[in-house]
Amino acid sequence: MQFFFEVLIAGLLSGVMYALVALGYVLIYKASGVFNFAQGAMVFFAALTTAGLVDSGLSLWLAVPLTMVAMVVLGLLTEKFVLRPLVAQHEITLFMATIGLTFFIEGLAQAIWGANVRALDLGIEDVPLEWLLESANIAVSQFDLIASGIAAVLVTLLAIFFSKTKIGRALRAVADDHQAALSIGIPLQHIWGIVWAVAGFVALVAGLLWGARNGVQFALTFVALKALPVLILGGFTSVPGAIVGGLIIGASEKLAEVYLGPYVGGGIEGWFPYVLALLFLVVRPEGLFGERIIRRI
């Protein structure tokens, strides 16, 4: 039983890390109806920029705000040169544009900082909590616990931002209908600029935590793969949904790998969350917390 709980806790903590990446997708989708394929590339760009600045001799405390500035600029430029010319175009057109953006950002990051892999030290030791290990023989990573705390704070802030602020309400209006929002005087470009900047901030937080966890390398773009089933499960428009989806995906993939894996040759962690998400999609297409769309046909 102790081992079961150990696996479950590890899964829940990993799930929070997936949710961090999923949040970036939710933000952009919620505000603009665009599935931003480039979110993984943004995570990589943010982590590489911070690590690059630190390696150039800057302190982490200076490198992080500078990277934040870079992410805001990247977001604003994306809005101006990629999204603005495509206003009122079909969703698939915007989606294709973000695919192009992915390759551009990946290339840009490596062109600026090179292809070398880097370490990123946030000063948080990634070791098991000793007292828990000694008292209950359960290994829980100190780093993952702190990362979960950061994610909780971030989600709370974003939830308040969306529901309690004027900009948050404007964001939701834009998401519902671009043209209707424009007609009542909501500045679309301004709103999109803000949301891309906020998504850049979320990408920075995810990049810092994932970069410190596994190192800063191109493979950071792959963390996006972990976020997709989270989105399907939690819904594309719900911030709390991303967290709950992350927890479910994290816990189920770990339990499946440990208890189901040995019967099917192991290595199922990669595809199991997708199967789970697919099954969920059949029962509840809008996800756990997504908005149910009812259309008259």
Partner: peptide, 13 residues
């Protein structure tokens, strides 16, 4: 370990 291997907690447990 499933590709790409950026998450291995279950294997290490």
């Amino acid at each position: 370990v499933a590709h790409p291997g950026n998450e291995q907690q279950s294997q290490w447990l």
